[in-house]
């Protein structure tokens, strides 16, 4: 019994990481209807940037985040204004194929720069620290990851619904032309949205790098986890994304408990089941 409760708790906490993978995807889809196939590779890029920063300056990965986040944000802004804005329009092929191309480029650039050897960010004592709750042992790092995910999502929610920036995001998402009439330059607004999304991706990348080892090839898998969390939670609902991440995480830990080879497969199956019974996700945004 306690074993299964433990599985459940680990799954929920793992879901926090997946929600972080998903939050950026969800944000840019919400603002500009763009699905970024390179999202997973950008997460891995952030992990490598974290690695280089920790090595170069001899700092803790959390300190490295202070550099990685702004760098990711700048990459996001430049990428959006330089390339992705040109792909937006009624046709879905250009954004899809261009981000797919980006994915291949990033992956191979990382391979060229860092080789295929698995790497890890070392965060010292925090990696193994844990607290005991009753007879459960909960790792500090997963707990912290989950707390950060909740904070990031709450922050995004606040930004989206209570700030001038968020108002601009919603307006451009509603009607690009009319937003432009109000003095919003959509190219710039989209750039800001991508910058923010990649800053969140930076957080995800660093936490991923501390938690597990990574190599340039694993980006696709992270994209899929993020995507599954978004769809399970329901498009356009950012708290739903957290719920989606948690469901995915729990499905994976249950799968892994039954047979270690089933971890990822169980997550995919949970996703397909949700798609079969609730095609709009569990918590689709209410239309008013």
């Amino acid at each position: 019994m306690i074993e299964w409760i433990n599985v459940l708790v680990q799954g929920v906490l793992l879901g926090g990481l997946y929600a972080l993978f998903a939050a950026g995807l969800s944000l840019i889809f919400g603002v500009m209807r763009l699905v970024n196939i390179a999202h997973g590779d950008l997460i891995i890029l952030a992990a490598y940037l974290g690695l280089s920063t920790t090595i170069m300056f001899g700092v803790h990965p959390f300190a490295a985040a202070l550099l990685v986040l702004p760098v990711m944000a700048i990459i996001g802004y430049v990428l959006q204004r330089g390339i992705l804005n040109q792909t937006l329009g009624p046709d879905i092929l250009p954004p899809l194929l261009v981000t797919f191309g980006l994915s291949v480029i990033i992956q191979n650039a990382l391979l060229e720069g860092y080789s295929a050897d698995p790497q890890k960010l070392s965060a010292g004592a925090i990696e193994t620290a844990s607290v005991n709750v009753g007879s459960l042992t909960i790792g500090i790092l997963p707990l912290l990851t989950f707390a950060i995910a909740v904070a990031v999502i709450a922050g995004l929610q606040w930004m989206f619904y209570s700030t001038a920036l968020g108002r601009g995001f919603r307006a451009v998402s509603d009607n690009q032309d009319i937003a432009q009439l109000m003095g919003l330059n959509k190219a710039h607004v989209f750039g800001l949205a991508m910058a923010l999304a990649l800053a969140v991706t930076g957080i995800a990348g660093i936490l991923l790098g501390i938690r597990t080892s990574f190599d340039p090839s694993i980006g696709g898998g992270r994209l899929i986890f993020g995507f599954e969390a978004v769809i399970i939670g329901g498009l356009g609902n950012i708290w739903g994304t957290l719920a989606g991440g948690v469901i995915l995480g729990v499905a994976q830990t249950i799968g892994a408990k039954i047979d270690p080879g089933w971890q990822v497969l169980a997550g995919h199956i949970a996703f397909l089941v949700v798609l079969a019974i609730r095609p709009n996700g569990l918590f689709p945004r209410v239309q008013h």
Partner: peptide, 23 residues
């Protein structure tokens, strides 16, 4: 662009009102 025109002091009340539904 429309946003540049707007900053110069020209505003349009568009046909069909076109409010932002999310706002």
């Amino acid at each position: 662009r429309a946003d540049e025109v707007a900053y110069r002091g020209l505003a349009l009340v568009p046909e069909g009102r076109q409010l932002f539904p999310s706002l």
